[in-house]
Structures are given as structure tokens and as C-alpha cells.
Design a binder for these strands. Structure first.
Lengths: 340, 340
DNA sequence: GTGAAAGCGCTAACAG
DNA sequence: CTGTTAGCGCTTTCAC
């Protein structure tokens, strides 16, 4: 067992000693800000290479009071919506020479809180958050007061007014429902996430609005607000299809419901008209192609990051809430006949 | 005597002053390591809450020489394979109270290098990397020597022996090709990424092996090694289907090729037997279900993170290379008749 | 139990 | 152009 000697990273003093110059001269060379005589410059550079010196960013940041790091807390990086958003934030951060600390709150407000505290303690300069449903607005406010600028994305936080980037959830769902109604459907089922989730209730409101626009009654039997799963999708479908007037179309409130529902529909070999909120890979390869209301997670991430950096740069204008449009992509599934 | 500018984070000295105790006592309370008399404890706690004090992690880390942060550099977080892997790494990091600095190298070795340097300078304790094809092994080695333990995932680095987590790429592709051969196919096309990509050449080798096992000749016209795109998928398919003996089956070397090919096949309304490397959402909803060779990105991430923390904890045993098995999931697309 | 003093590695301020 | 002297906010001796 050879225990390695603690290979201590060489410091600037080590370099200074090796090169026979002062600490400050090394600092000048490393930062390249001020000029140093060619002879010394060379000596220092040689020493740096020889020792394999790298500046300790922490010491520097401690001194300068800046960390060149931003944080991103969202529900789940493994979800395509968030992973695309993450990538967009990364790009902006990289442009600004900042690194990104990321973490998934997994829909758990306690975990979200812990993560945000942990990021705050690390002195991030700003934080982009998808605020978990149920997270304490007062906590976020105190955290923001403690130093890190915040931008909310995907969901707002009631009672705490900060820059926020949202999709037009209501308008999108309304548009999707209308596409089904325009194709002659009047019995349209809606599947959304638990209604405490902001996007879920907004989208349901869009569905209600479209139904009201067409003077169609809402049937509670056709409205499901629950966490998506293939099993529950199957149960609800079975229940609905056994109704005297079964639904002829489905409006799915999110990606995971769409996938669960399509899987369940396939299992019971049933075809109904379908529109889903959120685009997903292969939606165009299925037969018929699945019509979706597409958000632009990349644009949301980019915008949130840009807003954040504007604040970091000192912008003190009032907080703004930006709502991005969504796009109805017609691929055929919305126009399946009301009676198959 | 220094007047506090607005929004300055309170420090331990501020707390000490407010509570009328020494700095060290505050430190003791904050860390909870040593005992403090109840009276002072209370005074300090009150001061902490009153001032909204939070410990500056950077100062602490500077002093202790530890950052409680690990880095993750992969090709693209937006790719489901990597986003699932990321999530798994996050979980292990969280268990260990570490935060995660992530970034996408976007298949650009220069960018990868820049990111890794940037992470190294931030004093991360360890780094999990999907080494970009073409990245300099010497650079990685010097970076590792400079302090941060490394673990490679998904791809090895030739000439630099560190802990590595891989999938059984060769065995998986061989198994996939055999599934097609067993269904009577002899003209099997293979689509892989550019052959400088480790996983691509391994999988091609698996395809070659299966063909050799069955004493089938390789037809170069049926082997494509290129970056996936729907456009090129269409061109290659058109070319192949115009051959005297067109392929009756396709083995796709990765996720992106699978999607591009399925899209192109749908456009030209052609059905061939199909097996793809990497599982993907909705593979089971398509008709027929798409048979895949499934990797386990979550297990890969978890394993890589566990190996990394073992090293951080001081394990100095020789580097190991772990190969995870893959699973052939039969969903029907492999058994489409050789002549449609 | 408690506190004073000495740094961690770096940069800023101010001489020469 | 160069070096000296202070710190950044915290933990760590080592005294009391």
C-alpha cells in the first residue's frame, strides 16, 4: 500500500520563490493585466510550467467577492423539457464565462430548499429556479435578500415578485382543445397533473375556456388531475370508455400524460383523437402523427439566463414576467373522426 | 467603523459583535462541533437569525482545502442518455452532500478542455467525464495530477488508465444483429456514428462479429458510419433500397440514428425489420414495437459517482474498468419477415 | 468553555 | 515596472 504524499498544489508563493520574484509579479503574470519585464515574465512562466501551477479560484473569488458561478434548480434533469432548458442555460453561462451548478428538486419542496441553501452558501451570483410547488415564498425571498439574484422559470411564485419566464399555458391548452372541437369533437377528456401544479391548473383553465367558447358543458367524469402514470392512465381510460357517452378525443396536459395515455391506448387497441401539451420525440413517427402544443424550453432557458445576467450586471428595473408563445403542431391525431 | 453597504452579507464577525462573543464561539455554534454554554449558544443563534447570517462556503473551503463539489462533463445534457446519467450522479452527490457542476462539451474537444480546466480551477474534488473524441490524453493526465480525481464514463481514454464505466457495446450490437439473423435476415444494414467515436466502432465490431458468427459476408454498401441526421438517413435508405439486393433489416448503432431512420422510413412508407442500440421513449408504442439493445444510463451514472467518491475517500487501489451489461428488449420489430 | 492570533491563496492599495 | 503590506471570511492552533 503506497499512500501518496499529499500532493499539495503549488501556490503563487511557490512560483514566486522558484522564479525569484515577488508574489505580486506572479499575480501580474497570471492575470496578464499589468506589464512585466520580459526577463521576469519568462522566469515566472517557466516556474509556472515547471511546478504545474494553477491558480486557486476559491482564494481569488474570496478576495474578489465574485464566483463566476450561477445555479439552476429544477424538478428533474432527466425530463426532456428540463434537460433542453438546462442546455440553453449552459450556453449562455459559458458565453459569460460562468459555470453552472445544477440540481433536481424532484418535486420535493424540502429538497428544493436544501439545494437552494446549499447553492446560496456557495456564493453563486444568481439562481434560476423552477419553484417546486409548495415551496415557501418567504424562504425564497430571504434567500434572494441574502445575495443571489433569482429568476423563476416555468412557474411563478405567488407573493414574491421576481423576473419570471413562463409559457402561455392557458392559451396553448385553449388552442389545442379548439383544434379538437373544430374537428367535431364534443366529448373531450382532459388529463392534467395535480391541480396544485401551476401549469396544470393553467392548462385546465385553457381547456375550460375552449369548451366555454364552444358552449360545451364540462363533464367532471372526463377531467383527471393527477400525477401521470401508465397504470392510472389505463384505469381512467377504461372508466371513461365505459360511460354512456364516452370521450372521442383527449387533450393531454403534459408530456408524461401523453406518453402514459398513448401507451395505454395502444394496449387496449383504441384510437381516439389526441392533442398533447409539450412536443416529444417521435410524435411525428407515430401513426397518425401526434398533434401537440409545443413549448420552447430552449428559448425559455436562454431568456431566463439572459434576464439573470442582466440583473447580475446591475439592472435594477422592476421585475418582469415574460410569457412565451406556444405552437400548435398539427400532425393528424387531432382530426380523427368523432366516431371510429 | 466600516459602514455596511446595502446588501452586504453578514459575516461571522458581525454575528460575534452582535452577540457579544468571540469569533471562535460563533464558529463553534455554526459548526456544532464543540460545546458552547447554553446562554451564549442562544445569544449567537438569535444574532444569526436576526442578521440572516449564512456561512460563506468559499472562505471555509479555502481554509479547509475541500470544496464539497464534483464536476460532470458530458457531450450534451439535452440527450436523454446523458440527462438520465446526470440525474443518477446528482443523487449520489446529494447523498454525499456534494454539489454538482455540470457542462456539455458538445463533441468539441477544445470546449471540453476549457470546461475541464475551468472546473479544475474551481477546486472540484472529483470529475466524471465522457471524454470527447479527440481529447488530449496528456491534458487529462496533467489535470488529474493537478488535483481532481477522474472517472470516465461511456468511453475510455487510450493511454490514460483511470476508473472507467462502459456498456458492453460490442456484445450488445452482436446480440442485436443475431436477433435479426435468427429471424432469417441476411442483408442487414448497419448505421453507426463516425468511427472515431469509441462506442460507434465497438458496436460496428459487434455487428461484424454476429455476421461472422453466421458466416454472412459484410457488404460495405450496407454499412454507414456517420453523424446521424434525418436527411442523410433518407439518402442512405434510398441508395440501399435501390440495390439489386436491398437490405431487409436495419441495425441502428444509436438513439439518434434510430429516430432519424424511423422518421425516414415512415416518410417513404417502407417497413423493414429493425433493432436499435439504446432504448427510447415510445419505442413500445410504435407499431410494431421497436426492439432495442437497452443500456442503463442511470446505473452507469450511479456507478461512476460511487467509484469517484471511493477515490475521494482515499481508495488507492489500481484503476478499474467496469463493463455493464445491456439488455435486448424484444418488441416485435426484429421479427418482420425478410420479404414484405 | 472560551478567545486571541495565525493563517488558507489570492488580489488590492500603495508605496518605491 | 516592482515589491510590501493588508486583508477577503473562515477554521485552527494554542493559550487561558
Amino acid at each position: 500500500m503506497t499512500t501518496q504524499p499529499p500532493r499539495a498544489r503549488p501556490t503563487m508563493s511557490d512560483v514566486a520563490a522558484e522564479a525569484g520574484v515577488s508574489l505580486k509579479t506572479v499575480s501580474r503574470v497570471v492575470n496578464g493585466t499589468e506589464s512585466v519585464s520580459p526577463a521576469r515574465l519568462h522566469r515566472v512562466q517557466t516556474a509556472i510550467e515547471h511546478l504545474g501551477f494553477r491558480r486557486n479560484e476559491f482564494a481569488r473569488q474570496l478576495r474578489q467577492g465574485t464566483t463566476a458561478t450561477i445555479g439552476l434548480v429544477l424538478e428533474d434533469v432527466a425530463d426532456p423539457f428540463y434537460s433542453v432548458l438546462t442546455r440553453a442555460v449552459e450556453e449562455i453561462a459559458l458565453q459569460r464565462n460562468h459555470m453552472l451548478l445544477t440540481s433536481s428538486a424532484a418535486e420535493d419542496p424540502h429538497r428544493a430548499r436544501r439545494l437552494i441553501e446549499s447553492l446560496g452558501a456557495r456564493g453563486i451570483e444568481g439562481l434560476i429556479v423552477t419553484p417546486s410547488t409548495g415551496i415557501d415564498a418567504a424562504f425564497l425571498e430571504s434567500e434572494a435578500a441574502a445575495g443571489s439574484t433569482m429568476v423563476f422559470v416555468d412557474r411563478p411564485v405567488t407573493g414574491f415578485d421576481v423576473d419570471t419566464v413562463l409559457s402561455d399555458n392557458l392559451g396553448g391548452a385553449r388552442q389545442g382543445a379548439r383544434a379538437l372541437i373544430d374537428n367535431g369533437h364534443r366529448r373531450i377528456a382532459f388529463f392534467g397533473d395535480a391541480d396544485i401544479v401551476f401549469t396544470a391548473s393553467e392548462r385546465r383553465a385553457g381547456y375550460f375556456a375552449a369548451m366555454a367558447d364552444a358552449r360545451l358543458a364540462i363533464d367532471d367524469d372526463l377531467v383527471v388531475m393527477d400525477t401521470p402514470s401508465t397504470a392510472t392512465a389505463g384505469l381512467h381510460l377504461a372508466r371513461m370508455l365505459a360511460l354512456a357517452e364516452p370521450p372521442t378525443a383527449i387533450l393531454s396536459g403534459n408530456n408524461r400524460w401523453s406518453i402514459a395515455l398513448l401507451r395505454a391506448l395502444r394496449e387496449i387497441e383504441t384510437v381516439v383523437a389526441f392533442v398533447g401539451f409539450d412536443d416529444f420525440e417521435l410524435a411525428d413517427v407515430l401513426k397518425p402523427g401526434i398533434t401537440v402544443i409545443a413549448q420552447d424550453p430552449s428559448a425559455m432557458g436562454r431568456l431566463a439566463a439572459e434576464m439573470l445576467f442582466r440583473r447580475i450586471d446591475g439592472d435594477t428595473s422592476p421585475p418582469q414576467r415574460v410569457q412565451l408563445g406556444v405552437t400548435l403542431i398539427r400532425r393528424g391525431s387531432e382530426s380523427i373522426a368523432a366516431r371510429a
